[in-house]
């Protein structure tokens, strides 16, 4: 009945907000096709920085390391985070519950410098060589908490009677989870994996602390370049990353929307 329309005020604030959010990114993308070496002065269209980027082996190596870390840490974090979400929503009361939920929520708001420093000191204290594995473990630790939050919010809205029906029909709790709960919360689990993946892809600070010689991630590489000023190759690399992530996010949200519609039709709250 009461259909909402854009009022003048609302349209203005949205336009302003989106210009603010997207203009810097748009400029970055446009100037990645700039022929001039001076990043902010237009010197004609060119794709030379993309060519330069692909010929730069250290960038390619860093990208490969980053990708491996991201896939591995996102996968482990998804498993651990889903377990943590189950503990938060299904395990009821147990000794140490306060501690547990504290440890799940704190990393979300912990300054990265602290997380990075403390993990580094741990790895030094137990004498592990820093490199690929220590970055992966560090990423698992903070991204599993994001996974736990995403999955537990889905579990809260989940109709418990579905699980109870499975138990009533003779499933044991493990099978009830695998056959009923997990398929239904799958979109949230996938979203959580994607989140963990991008968090790992994105991280500079924690990786800088926990990496060692031989394991340089892409953000570390980008950072070492941009500290010294604007670099056209970085614009090209940023454009590629932005396009890849945008395509991924849009595809994922379309899939999620489809899943939502299917779920709405099947009538699960």
């Amino acid at each position: 009945m009461n259909q909402k329309r854009f009022t003048w005020f609302n349209a203005t604030s949205l336009t302003f907000g989106f210009v603010f959010l997207y203009l810097p990114i748009m400029l970055l993308i446009i100037y990645s096709f700039n022929d001039s070496k001076l990043v902010t002065v237009w010197g004609g269209f060119s794709t030379r920085w993309y060519t330069a980027l692909f010929q730069n082996e250290s960038f390619m190596n860093a990208a490969w390391v980053t990708f491996k870390v991201a896939v591995l840490s996102a996968t482990i974090a998804t498993v651990l985070g889903t377990l943590a979400a189950l503990v938060l929503t299904r395990a009821g009361k147990f000794r140490g519950r306060m501690l547990f939920s504290g440890m799940v929520y704190s990393p979300l708001v912990m300054p990265e410098v602290i997380t990075g420093l403390s993990l580094l000191l741990l790895f030094v204290a137990i004498g592990w060589d820093r490199g690929f594995w220590t970055i992966t473990i560090a990423h698992v630790t903070f991204s599993m908490c994001y996974v736990a939050v995403v999955v537990s919010s889905r579990l809260i809205s989940f109709d418990r009677s579905l699980e109870e029906a499975a138990l009533d029909l003779g499933c044991n709790p493990f099978n009830a989870f695998m056959q009923v709960t997990l398929p239904i919360i799958m979109p949230a689990v996938v979203a959580a994996w994607l989140l963990a993946f991008t968090l790992s892809l994105d991280d500079l600070v924690i990786a800088s602390f926990t990496s060692g010689p031989g394991a340089t991630t892409l953000p570390m590489k980008i950072y070492s370049q941009v500290r010294l000023g604007l670099k056209p190759e970085i614009n090209a690399l940023s454009t590629l990353l932005i396009v890849a992530v945008s395509v991924g996010v849009i595809a994922a949200s379309l899939i999620a929307k489809r899943a939502e519609q299917v779920r709405a039709r099947s009538g699960d709250g």
């Binding site: 810097p24 970055l28 991008t198 994105d202 500079l204 941009v226 945008s246 996010v249």
Partner: peptide, 14 residues
């Protein structure tokens, strides 16, 4: 979802 570092970097040019 896009890289934090890149978003900060984009402001240097501006």
């Amino acid at each position: 979802w896009t890289s934090f570092l890149i978003r900060v970097y984009s402001w240097i040019g501006i």
